[in-house]
Write a protein that binds this DNA or RNA. Structure first.
Lengths: 185, 185
DNA sequence: ATTTATAGGAAACGATCATTTCCGAATCAA
DNA sequence: TTGATTCGGAAATGATCGTTTCCTATAAAT
């Protein structure tokens, strides 16, 4: 089931919610049309499940990328690099489900809006935590506004995914990470 | 006609392309359904016209906000503040047509993808020009990588519009601008 | 071997939407 | 005043889509 949901995630990322038909989903998930409606109440339920699956998968990959060791500064850089890696080439063109949902559904669907906000809040808290870790271990200045800096980084990460839809190179995105680290001065 | 297009812009921003029906457009534009098809070939033509109209309006407002005087650093701050102002409250929730188009249409419609890329490139060039102006007038260090910094600012601006869809306050976004200025060190 | 539950797949339904067509009213010219 | 033209607006059309239903085949269970 998770395999099928991963396929659904890719379709929803690339096409958005409204432009994805049930046929698109069954084709990608390799399921019969009847099977989709046996497993899910409706298209929206498939989307919500795909959203949650995407959130879990991305969160795990991000945690792997951050790793356990290193200073707060080093780990924060790894977060930026993780997003830079996802914001170029084919994966960048595919787009981000959170960004797409924010643009397409946040106004109409309160439940989707809540999940989008929760995803962003979670990311912001993660960034804020890493900054505070860096301030504790001395790799980031103690007088820095951790909340505002975390919010800046959150905006930057989401923006990279937007700009990445127009097809940038890995080097272009990696260079952004280097400059962004200057905000930790 | 421009008035009607401005209304269309708002609808497309809020609802996205696929979720806006012709009825939504006629209601917002206060036009008869027949009149829409007398003025435009089809829904996509309305969208492209609205996109161009939005681009022109936003570019003019941005130029007004930047002003003619001041250092490159001061003018760059005004660009960031302009986007912060658009990324909170009701306008922030309404969203950005470029971001929405990038997420929803950039993969399917080459013409839309080109316009999105052109809008981002134009913004990136504007940012790069202001940075170079700042390097010429001494308000921004000369050894700074203007291209990478401009790209960072572009990502940040687009990301602010994404995050702004979840309803942030003016102060939250204004604080991001202050931190972002540190990237010019 | 027979029955029962399960899943795939096709067909049908109802709704919605983009688009076209048609009709009436209003405007303008003669 | 009359006739032509234009424009708003409503109805009709054809297609698509989400959803439901029904049928068949396969596999599990007794």
């Amino acid at each position: 089931m998770n395999d099928a949901l991963d396929k659904a995630v890719r379709v929803f990322c690339a096409r958005g919610y409204h432009a994805t038909s049930i046929g698109d989903l069954t084709e990608a998930m390799q399921l019969a049309q009847g099977s989709v409606y046996k497993a899910f109440k409706d298209k929206r339920a498939v989307f919500l499940a795909a959203f949650d699956r995407n959130k879990a998968v991305r969160a795990e990959k991000l945690q792997d990328a951050i790793g356990a060791g290193g200073t707060g500064r080093e780990r924060l850089r790894k977060v930026l690099a993780f997003y830079a890696e996802a914001s170029h080439g084919a994966e960048g063109r595919q787009g981000c489900l959170v960004v797409g949902s924010a643009a397409e559904l946040a106004i109409f669907d309160d439940e989707v809006a809540q999940r989008v906000a929760a995803s962003l809040d979670r990311n912001e808290a993660l960034l804020s935590g890493l900054i505070q870790q860096g301030q504790a271990d001395g790799s980031i200045p103690a007088d820095l506004d951790s909340a505002a800096t975390a919010r800046l980084m959150l905006c930057l990460l989401q923006g990279m995914r937007v700009v990445g839809k127009t097809g940038r190179s890995r080097d272009e995105m990696a260079a952004v990470v280097e400059v962004a680290m200057k905000a930790l001065a």
